[in-house]
Design a binder for these strands. Sequence first.
DNA 1: ACTTCACACATTGGATACACTTTTATATCA
DNA 2: TGATATAAAAGTGTATCCAATGTGTGAAGT
Lengths: 250, 250
Amino acid sequence: MGKRASAELGTGRADEGLGGNGRDEAIYRNLFVAIVENHLAPGTKLPEDTLAETYGVSRTSIRKVLQRLAHERLVDVRLNRGASVAQPSVGEARDIFSARRIIECGAIPQVVAKATPAKLDVLRELVGREHAAQDRGDWRESIYLSGAFHVELIRLSGNETLTDFLTQLVSRSSLVIATYGSPQTASCRHSEHDDVIEIIAGGDVDGATRWMDRHLRDVERTVVLVEEEPAPADLKKILEEVAQRRPKLR
Amino acid sequence: MGKRASAELGTGRADEGLGGNGRDEAIYRNLFVAIVENHLAPGTKLPEDTLAETYGVSRTSIRKVLQRLAHERLVDVRLNRGASVAQPSVGEARDIFSARRIIECGAIPQVVAKATPAKLDVLRELVGREHAAQDRGDWRESIYLSGAFHVELIRLSGNETLTDFLTQLVSRSSLVIATYGSPQTASCRHSEHDDVIEIIAGGDVDGATRWMDRHLRDVERTVVLVEEEPAPADLKKILEEVAQRRPKLR
DNA sequence: ACTTCACACATTGGATACACTTTTATATCA
DNA sequence: TGATATAAAAGTGTATCCAATGTGTGAAGT
């Protein structure tokens, strides 16, 4: 496991101001990483008492953490049915990548304006760790660091609100990849991220924007979003139509 | 009070999938509107007991609602100190408007692509209600509807994720206006919103984008973001500096 | 043998109770 | 009078308890 001192996915401004003590935070973090790194597959049930005794706390604290994850759309919580790891629909997946293009491309001008050599070095170090993880075949760490790179890049814009949004989108992207993508093709191509750092260092706003747009479309292409959704809401209508066509079954 | 059947601020996709009972939802809604319409001033304490007996439920439910509002950054929750209506800092305010420009301008192409006469009529109806509220001097309703217009406009893009983000940004904008703006100048100029509908109806992507950018800068200009933050951390330093200049007061 | 109903089990939702922290009020002393 | 320490209060954090809901199994009836 690599160190994650400089850049932690999901440890943004979102922590402050919402009253979490250290223990809750640790539980949240643990679950967050487990979901984002795909140790817990989408759809996995998350029973409250199991988690409660796992972490040695009462269900009250667990419920708080689950609600937070639910609000970040990493888990689904249905009434009287408990929580499970979210399974983004195809439409949701498209929306997520579309939103990422808008936000990440839109923030590029400010990123370029505020980039300093020191900050770019932090990014380079992150890419270095990403490559190392990729070379050793640790695809979980690789995906995690790839996401962290995107978040840290936008963090350079200085806009914490936007960075929080992107953190959410990037985590959900991991779920999309886990649901619709093959693990191999999922992570960004080797040495992709290097390029954009130099483009930004050169102050080329348009170039960086174009790079980001193309890059995100490439990532989206690695997941298969062709199949249509089951559309559970239409189930009743469909069955009624079928009943119409075959009035008396027996 | 005007009807709000067609467009409700804060009633987006965010409700589904996070296990909200009807009663909780009503409480959330009530508090949400109270904050966004500025019936509760920024900084107002929100004690759990008070809210609990107000709505006739236990603190458990109240805490759930407060956590949700905290995650939407409409309330601040500090450890062992309870919740209070959020007071966006100047930096936060800038971030919010900057993020709005990126998201709302960035979504315009898809909005124009997906706009239909029927959907534009819904927007026109919303603007009509906004004007009515403005004419009768109901500035609370006016601000609310102005925000709803921006949200519904972006909803036309079909991107629910992005619409949820914008809903949050628009609600927080209301807090910014309540904190830093004068109520009169806060709402958009009369008949501003009419224009963009026609630009979109004409299919003019660039025009609509430019309109949105200018419009959001205008709105931002109606609030005063010049004063530096009180920075309570610097209080001690300030006092020490004063002490330096006037060593022995008595 | 298959369907249906009913009961038992498991799990979640909500309320109460208790422990701890922060804040305020009061009293004592300089 | 003013400041500080102590004690009471108000309020929050967590655990436990009970009720409500969903799920699964088994018995009874056709």
